[in-house]
């Protein structure tokens, strides 16, 4: 019990020397590479695309440098494009919802595992990211093709050969497969932050497992589900490889239409206009969603 031995007060330190030049510019220097990369690879092409979308286009002469809003007018009034936009967002929304339905329980199970299994299964969850999207898309087309494994099974059970490829369903399934890790990881991260005693508390007050999940756990991992949904939706809505390879020529989504305009029709300004509209529409959907869900959460959790 030496608590009463008086501590000699630590000498008051001299006034801290003013930070050197390097220190003062350190934040700017550190942010520099990222800023440069972002400006060169994201902002510049975006700006060029934006400017391009106002250029005039003639079939005979190609792109001219005049200013027109006709491409925007065309996309926004033509039912053909409207249908493609609706399909794109429908597919993205569906993929997001299915990812949430599969990914949230997956993350829950993962968070309850103990090592080494937890590490093993985390790797399994992340494994799809290690394989190229194109390779995985071809994997799906082999699986679902006319002579694929699934059709062989369908024939064997007597349902008969079914056309599985080039349908919206196939695109959704493949997107879910690719996007799932982007849902699991943020949900898992928010589960890591939960106090395990909170769940025990709910149980001790007589709550069933399902009530505990719905009333106590789910509200707390909402931010994780929110960020997972935003990532999955954004990536799905602008996905190109999967709809391109599994949607075929007829089932078009926005990204594949942009590609067609650029490389098929050679109408770059129209392609650019579609791309800009996709970006804006995507932003509106995501910001609205974020505002609704996050506002609801922030009100409670601060």
């Amino acid at each position: 019990m030496s608590s009463l031995s008086t501590d000699t007060a630590a000498p008051v330190s001299e006034k801290a020397p003013s930070p050197g030049l390097a220190q003062r510019f350190a934040p700017a220097l550190m942010a520099g590479p990222a800023t440069l990369l972002f400006a060169a690879l994201v902002l510049t092409p975006l700006l060029l695309t934006f400017l391009l979308s106002f250029n005039e286009y003639e079939h005979a002469t190609g792109r001219t440098h005049g200013f027109t809003l006709s491409h925007y007018a065309e996309v926004l009034t033509d039912g053909y494009y409207l249908e493609i936009f609706l399909r794109t967002f429908r597919v993205a929304a569906l993929a997001t919802a299915i990812c949430a339905v599969i990914g949230v329980p997956e993350a829950l199970i993962l968070s309850r595992m103990r090592n080494p299994w937890r590490s093993v299964f985390l790797l399994v969850v992340l494994a799809p990211l290690l394989v190229s999207v194109v390779v995985r898309a071809f994997g799906w087309s082999m699986l679902l093709g006319p002579d694929g494994v699934v059709n062989m099974i369908l024939q064997a059970v007597g349902i008969g050969r079914t056309r599985l490829l080039y349908s919206e369903g196939t695109v959704v399934v493949a997107l879910v497969h690719i996007m799932l890790p982007f849902m699991v990881i943020p949900v898992w991260t928010s589960l890591q932050k939960l106090d395990p005693a909170v769940e025990q508390a709910a149980l001790s007050f007589g709550a069933s497992r399902s009530t505990t999940m719905l009333r106590v756990i789910a509200p707390q991992i909402l931010p994780g589900i929110l960020s997972g949904s935003l990532i999955v939706f954004g990536l799905s809505a602008s996905a190109f490889a999967i709809p391109g390879l599994l949607g075929g020529r007829r089932l078009k989504m926005v990204a594949t239409v942009v590609y067609d305009q650029y490389l098929g029709e050679l109408n770059w300004p129209l392609g650019a206009a579609i791309a800009v509209i996709l970006l804006v529409a995507n932003l509106i959907v995501m910001l609205t969603y974020h505002h609704v869900v996050d506002g609801h959460y922030r009100k409670r959790m601060g």
Binding site: A197, V198, A207
Partner: peptide, 19 residues
Amino acid sequence: KPNSRGLGIVFQSYALFPH
């Protein structure tokens, strides 16, 4: 099962429902 014992528990971390 803990949810049918009906005991009142005060946890070290308090374990309040934050939401």
